[in-house]
């Protein structure tokens, strides 16, 4: 039983039909795999009036080498991301982050766009309706309180996507339809809106990843209670692209699962770039790590989660040290 409620269900075969349907109505919820949405419907957290299933649109399931980058169709599954030879070779962190999502069953169904546009989570509302009956509803399910921080007027739920930090580190763009029509936006801009209180509704058609310059290095690390299924306790994605064809070198560091959006360590990245020649110095290395830890600490929000104590969550950001160290090593290797 998917839901106790009746809802409309559409599964068009062409993108044109889907886009037209999406734009014509204002109550459409996109079904792109469903591993996030269906459990939310079963728990009565989401009660969509109309589901638009993209499953039958084959054009959304391809990975295409375009001039301006690799275009990954919205409905490409996480499993396919772990197996695609181009992605494995040129964007190993993306492959691995897809492999890190949940369980094999979920990776077989879950899609890249679905993962990016997953709902934020909190154990006060990711519960059945029966369970939630003992308390007035929280902000997320139509109430006025956040049980994580009753004094704050906003939902403190966390965003747990494993793919988003990597895609952000790649400066990915998103091809989508919104109420105004078809457009391409930076993933960062899309998430800024989507993860805000009054985020808009989108129909993503693909994720466009600009080609990395030669010598680019990336890494994704995830920690979770179980290796078999859990959302991250913390994850981190890093990328280094060296100077090329007149382009400046790039360092990107994103930390996930610690706030309502992935945390970007801009200050640390800038510091690394401005000290690129002296990174082997112990003092500089230590400064980079300290700076990164400080930067995360300042931007994260510690909330209660099941299976992870506040104590462990509070200290968990320290695992980014490993990713930063590997990043510095990679830069050294290239520069050396």
């Amino acid at each position: 039983m998917i839901s106790r409620y009746r809802f409309k269900y559409e599964a068009p075969c062409s993108l044109e039909t889907a886009a037209e349907f999406f734009q014509r109505r204002d109550n459409v919820t996109i079904l792109a795999g469903g591993t996030d949405l269906i459990p939310l419907m079963q728990y009565g957290v989401k009660k969509p009036e109309c589901l638009l299933d993209l499953e039958n649109i084959s054009s959304l399931k391809t990975i295409e080498k375009r001039e301006d980058g690799l275009l990954i169709g919205a409905m490409v599954t996480l499993f396919e991301l772990t197996k695609d030879p181009v992605i494995l070779q040129h964007m190993p962190a993306l492959s691995y982050s897809a492999f890190c999502v949940a369980s094999p069953q979920i990776r077989n169904l879950g899609t890249i766009a679905g993962n990016v546009l997953q709902e934020k989570r909190c154990y006060y509302y990711n519960q059945s309706e029966e369970w939630r009956k003992s308390k007035p509803p929280c902000i997320k399910v139509g109430g006025e309180i956040c049980y994580q921080a009753p004094k704050l007027p906003e939902c403190r739920a966390l965003y747990y996507s494993d793919l988003a930090p990597v895609l952000l580190a790649y400066d990915a763009k998103v091809l989508l339809y919104d109420a105004d029509g078809e457009k391409t936006v930076l993933l960062q801009d899309l998430l800024n809106d989507y993860l805000s209180e009054k985020g808009k509704n989108y129909l993503i058609t693909g994720i466009l990843i600009p080609y990395h310059v030669p010598g680019t290095w990336d890494k994704f690390i995830k920690y979770s209670t179980r290796q078999s299924i859990d959302f991250p306790t913390v994850n981190v994605a890093v990328r280094f692209s060296p100077v090329a064809e007149g382009l400046a070198p790039i360092v990107r560091i994103f930390v996930g699962a610690l706030a309502k959006e992935p945390i970007q360590l801009e200050k640390t990245a800038d510091y690394i770039l401005s000290n690129i020649g002296v990174l082997e110095e112990e003092e500089v290395k230590k400064k980079v790590i300290d700076m990164a830890l400080e930067e995360v600490k300042g931007k994260r929000a510690v909330v209660r989660e099941t299976g992870v104590t506040i104590k462990v969550k509070r200290e968990s950001y320290q695992v980014i040290t490993r990713a930063i160290e590997e990043l510095l090593d990679a830069i050294k290797r290239f520069e050396g």
Partner: peptide, 25 residues
């Protein structure tokens, strides 16, 4: 089994909240 002080009952209500190791773990 975790008891949440705010909800005043167990929060470990399903197999995502309750961490039972699987074969992969």
């Amino acid at each position: 089994i975790e008891i949440d002080k705010t909800a005043n009952k167990p929060s470990t209500s399903d197999l995502l909240h309750y961490k039972v190791p699987t074969s992969l773990d």
